Structures are given as structure tokens and as C-alpha cells.
Simulated scan of single mutants.
Amino acid sequence: MEKYKISDSQLVSLYKNGSEEAFEELLKRHKSRVFTTIFLIVKDKYVAEDLLQEVFIKAIRTIKGGRYNEEGKFLPWILRIAHNLAIDNFRKDKRYPTIVMEDGSPVFNTMEFAEGSFESAQIRKETHVKLRELINELPEAQKEVLVMRHYMDMSFQDIAESTGVSINTALGRMRYALINLRKKMKQYNIAYDQNFYPR
């Protein structure tokens, strides 16, 4: 039980001195946050699981190689590794999800985009980045349902079971997530900008 009182930096030191259990504890503490960081960028469960392993392999190599110098800041450090690996992967994979608002209008319908100018491609890329940022700002419960529904393509039945709530609660969280997302998008003038849709 004492391990719960040990700080991340102490666990890193123990791992440097040969304690595999110390790294297992770091993994257990932060795996979920690291996975979420990756998943929100790559939007694919299997890709995220692969990248999660890469992140911790990179962390092991850095620590064992004596190049780790972020004492006391293990989580921000490993999240930065996760973010960078996920962004690199995302740049290779240009698929985007279609999130449908309450009134049935899509936020983006990227599969139907015509080949446009560099400028329109750049605007589109920046808008998708902003959308992911806005999703990240949602309350945890709402973000969780939105991600499961639109990024993992889960049914509300599965979402309810996974999160331990009723289907009505899951639907309610989804509704509020979309309402909040719409409000945030309106602030940035990206809610229903016709420039992002084929006419």
C-alpha cells in the first residue's frame, strides 16, 4: 500500500535503480490519461493502443538511457511524448469523423470535400485542430460519451454499459455535449460556416 504515497519522481528513481514494479505503477497511474490524449487525436482505438505502447517504450528508453531530466513532472512529460507521437500519426492519416449536431446537420462532411486550394485545405486543417481542442474542453462525462459515440462508433447501449450509467443518462450527456460544443463553435464562427460544406 505504501506505493500509493510515492511520488512519480520517486518511482522514476526506483525504476532507474532496477525496480520494474515502480514502472508498472507509473503505467497504472497514467495509462488512461495517456490513452485519452492519443485517442482524441488519432480517433482510432487500435492505433491509439499501438501508440500507447510506443509512448511507454520511448519513456523506458529515455529513462534507462539516463536522458530523463523532468524531475517531478513525469505526467506532463509523458503526455508531451504521447501528443507528439499522435500528431505525427494524425498527419499521416487524413480521415476525420463526422459529428452530427442535434438538428441533424453535420459539423464536417469531409468525405465529400472537393479538392480545393492550399488555402482552403489549411483552413480546414486549422478548423479540425480547433474542433479537437473544443471537444477537449467539454466536461469529462460529456467528452467521454462524444468520443465513444463519434470516434469509437459505439452504440448508446455499449456506452451506457461501459460508463456504468443508464441509456437515458448516456443520451442526456450526449445531448449536453452537442449543445456545449455548438456554443463553443459559434464563439469561433465555425458552427455552420457554409465554406466547409459542399453545396
Rank of each mutant, 00 (worst) to 15 (best):
S32Q: 14
L79M: 07
A86N: 00
I78E: 00
L27G: 07
R173P: 08
K16E: 13
I167G: 13
F118P: 08
P106K: 08
P139T: 07
R91F: 14
E49W: 05
T98R: 12
K125Q: 06
N69A: 10
A177T: 01
P198I: 13
L52H: 10
F90N: 02
Y188M: 12
M111I: 14
E137Y: 10
V147W: 10
V42Q: 07
I60Y: 08
T110K: 14
F23W: 11
N84V: 09
K45H: 11
H150M: 10
T62P: 05
G65K: 08
H128S: 01
S162Y: 00
N180T: 03
A86K: 05
A82E: 02
T127K: 01
L79N: 00
E144F: 06
Q10P: 12
L14M: 15
F56R: 05
E112Y: 15
I78F: 05
M148V: 12
S19Y: 06
D193L: 09
A82Y: 04
S120R: 04
K64L: 03
S162P: 03
L85R: 06
E144W: 02
K130W: 01
W77R: 03
Y4Q: 10
M101D: 04
F108Y: 12
E102H: 07
I190C: 09
Q142W: 02
N84Q: 11
D88Q: 03
H83N: 11
H128M: 14
S19R: 06
A121K: 15
L178G: 07
T62Q: 09
E119D: 08
H150S: 15
V107N: 04
K94N: 14
N189S: 11
N189D: 12
G116V: 03
K143I: 01
V107P: 10
Y46M: 14
N168H: 08
L75C: 04
I190H: 08
E25Q: 02
K64V: 08
G72M: 06
I179Q: 02
K16C: 11
S166Y: 01
E70A: 13
F74I: 04
D158E: 15
F39C: 00
T163E: 02
N109P: 05
M148G: 07
T62E: 09
N195Q: 14
F90S: 13
I123G: 12
K28N: 03
P97C: 09
E140L: 11
Y188L: 14
R175C: 01
F118I: 09
